[in-house]
Amino acid sequence: MANLGIVIPAAGQGKRMGAGYNKQFLSLLGQPILAHTVRIFEESDFVSEIVIVGAEGDIAVIEEIVTQQRFKKVVAICIGGASRQDSVRAGVRALSSAIQRIVVHDGARPLLTLEVFHRFIEETKEYPAAVMGIPVKDTIKEIDSIGNILATLPRDSLRAVQTPQIFDREKLEEAHNRAASSGYCGTDDASLLEWMGYPVQMAEGMQGNLKITTPEDLLLAEMILENRQRADSRDGSSV
């Protein structure tokens, strides 16, 4: 099996959620959102190390979640930086030198399945960098600063990007270090490699792999998980 390291940035406070604290500590079917996310990789034979990156004031809560859930693959819980980019960079540094292939996954994406994750790992094993993406359903228009429409973009060539994203460690570290020294801020980790001119492969994503950002997202996530549990129960009872 692959020797993957997972970096989970979990420092965002999620102001749009309106909870008044880190949204990843909110309960999703009785467990913190973050616990659902970490468990995906805890249960994967592809993964040997997990690093969680959080805000300084959240470290104790994250440690408590890891202890309560008995996650064995979490090798570090480290303090993030001023931006997500800084946090991922800190998480990469916390992985052992044995890890040469790194996956970055949002702490607020708890609905990824092991089946889809393993498919992604297999499909992208020959690529130095790859991301998940799904086709864009809505018509996308480019506008200027005052709202005038400049162009209607062709949907066939557009993808909404998700995590996980996977990278060769050497290239990811190079991109982060170069961006930090240059003051460049990318929209995600893949954009840093694109900025440096490295090719990034797009792999098929997962429609249900939503990022929980608003209260409506949390309700939808609960519905998705409940439907999965019912389906699993039916499958188990038919064996």
Rank of each mutant, 00 (worst) to 15 (best):
5 G>W: 00
7 V>T: 12
10 A>M: 02
10 A>R: 02
12 G>C: 09
12 G>R: 03
14 G>D: 10
22 N>T: 12
23 K>W: 14
26 L>K: 02
26 L>D: 01
27 S>P: 13
32 P>Q: 09
34 L>A: 00
35 A>Q: 10
36 H>W: 11
37 T>V: 07
42 E>L: 07
43 E>N: 07
46 F>L: 07
49 E>S: 01
49 E>Q: 02
56 E>Q: 04
58 D>L: 02
59 I>E: 01
60 A>S: 12
60 A>R: 08
62 I>K: 00
64 E>H: 02
71 F>T: 00
72 K>E: 09
72 K>S: 14
73 K>A: 02
76 A>L: 10
77 I>S: 03
80 G>M: 13
81 G>S: 14
81 G>A: 12
83 S>A: 15
84 R>N: 13
84 R>K: 12
84 R>A: 14
84 R>C: 11
87 S>Y: 03
87 S>L: 06
89 R>E: 08
90 A>G: 01
90 A>C: 04
91 G>M: 00
94 A>W: 02
96 S>A: 01
98 A>T: 08
104 V>E: 02
105 H>L: 07
108 A>S: 15
110 P>C: 05
112 L>S: 05
113 T>A: 10
113 T>V: 10
113 T>M: 06
116 V>G: 12
119 R>W: 08
122 E>W: 09
122 E>M: 14
123 E>F: 00
124 T>A: 11
128 P>V: 11
132 M>D: 05
133 G>I: 05
135 P>E: 08
136 V>L: 03
138 D>F: 10
145 S>G: 13
147 G>R: 04
148 N>C: 11
149 I>P: 05
154 P>G: 05
154 P>D: 12
155 R>W: 03
156 D>N: 06
163 T>V: 11
163 T>Q: 07
164 P>I: 02
165 Q>P: 06
171 K>V: 10
172 L>T: 05
176 H>M: 13
177 N>Y: 06
179 A>Y: 00
180 A>D: 07
181 S>C: 06
181 S>G: 06
183 G>A: 14
184 Y>K: 09
184 Y>E: 14
185 C>S: 14
185 C>T: 12
188 D>I: 02
188 D>C: 13
190 A>S: 11
195 W>K: 04
196 M>S: 06
200 V>C: 12
201 Q>P: 13
201 Q>L: 13
201 Q>Y: 05
203 A>M: 08
207 Q>N: 11
210 L>M: 13
210 L>R: 04
213 T>Q: 10
215 P>W: 01
216 E>Q: 09
225 L>M: 03
229 Q>G: 03
232 D>R: 09
233 S>F: 10
233 S>V: 05
234 R>E: 15
234 R>M: 11
236 G>M: 10
